[in-house]
């Protein structure tokens, strides 16, 4: 009796809501923005008001519009980087784990090298040599970020592939003579789905951080609006020290919220992969009403005295009892 339900904990639902909200913002943000983010025709340094929900910059741009428009570039680049990095880590991880031998040694060494090199400094060096017109290209930036973000996923996927390699269904596919790449990508890969999903969430999370950071230190084109460039202009105009919190807080909070949403979703995947993390049994409220301790202490199995509660029909089908 294996329960293959995705855990529907409040954490996961909250994560889905947050991520869903920002996906909508990515799609519709630019159309919803009341003004052009470049429009400098407003009075500078306005505090938030009904006309300018997040106030204006010292150049007289509407910060609310910038935040809405900036969502798209930020999330699209992160998504490109996340997808490419996950694809890379999948190919490297599965190949290393499945083929083994020298292939494994070489690929493992490669991913370990990329793990050991600190990602951001490498990114900065590469990016600082990029021609200026490439820096405004989301695809180029996304690819460069993915180059520094694939190694961790590859390591995890490799480990999981190795444990799958000797399972019956893989063995069977090999025996009936399926081609190696078919076994790897049609037999092994589907079973890595939870890990791939988790790896995608992580790399997207990493990519948002990396992209925003690059933009913040002025290494992406300042003509592309994203949350990082907003912070770049805010910092450049000394907004933090002159008390213009409304300039840098909105993009910062957006970044943190997207990240939180992704991390919360990942909790769900974690609980799916590692059943020990799943909360056992009832909510705190239900436990209280049954007179059980709020949490169970190891080594003091609780006693319920309503022995007559024995159910006539099963309510939980997913309950696996091991003895």
């Amino acid at each position: 009796m294996k329960s293959i339900r995705f855990p529907r904990s409040p954490k996961v639902i909250l994560g889905l809501c947050i991520v869903g909200f920002f996906v909508l913002l990515t799609i519709f943000g630019p159309y919803l923005a009341p003004y052009s983010p470049d429009n400098t025709s407003f009075a500078p340094n306005l505090t938030p008001s009904a006309h300018h929900w997040f106030g204006t910059t010292s150049l007289g741009q509407d910060i609310f519009s910038q935040t809405l428009v900036g969502a798209r570039a930020t999330i699209v680049v992160a998504l490109i980087a996340g997808l490419v990095a996950t694809l890379l880590s999948m190919v490297v991880g599965i190949a290393a784990g499945y083929v083994g031998g020298f292939t494994d040694d070489g690929l493992s060494m490669l991913s370990n090298v990329f793990l050991a090199i600190p990602g951001l400094p490498l990114l900065i060096v590469i990016d600082s040599y990029l021609p200026v017109n490439s820096r405004s290209n989301s695809l180029v930036i996304g690819l460069v970020i993915s180059l520094t973000g694939w190694a961790w996923g590859a390591r995890v996927i490799r480990a999981q592939t190795m444990s799958l390699r000797n399972r019956d269904f893989v063995e069977a596919a090999r025996i009936i003579g399926e081609k190696r790449y078919r076994v790897m990508f049609f037999e092994v890969a589907p079973n890595l789905l939870p890990i791939l999903a988790s790896s995608l969430l992580f790399t997207v999370l990493y990519s948002i951080g990396a992209y925003v950071t690059l933009a913040y230190i002025g290494l992406t084109s300042t003509s592309v609006w994203n949350w990082g460039t907003m912070l770049f202009w805010a910092q450049g105009n000394n907004a933090p020290l002159s008390g213009e919190w409304y300039w840098f807080v909105p993009p910062g909070i957006c970044i943190a919220l997207v990240g939180t949403g992704l991390a919360l979703l990942n909790f769900g995947i974690d609980e799916f992969i590692n059943p020990r993390l799943r909360a056992a049994g009832l909510s705190a409220k239900q436990r209280r009403s049954l007179g059980l301790p709020r949490r169970q202490r190891l080594g003091l199995t609780p006693v319920v005295h309503s022995a007559s509660q024995r159910p006539s029909t099963p309510a939980i089908a997913s309950n696996t009892v091991s003895t």
């Binding site: 913040y216 912070l231 933090p240 020290l241 910062g252 970044i255 943190a256 997207v258 939180t260």
Partner: peptide, 25 residues
């Protein structure tokens, strides 16, 4: 946990900026 998750998602430099603004200046 949710609070910690939120803090984990904040870029370092942004949190530093906020700290600077509140506790420093």
């Amino acid at each position: 946990i949710p609070t910690a998750t939120f803090f984990q998602a904040i870029p370092y430099f942004f949190l530093a900026t906020v700290m600077l603004l509140i506790f420093g200046s």
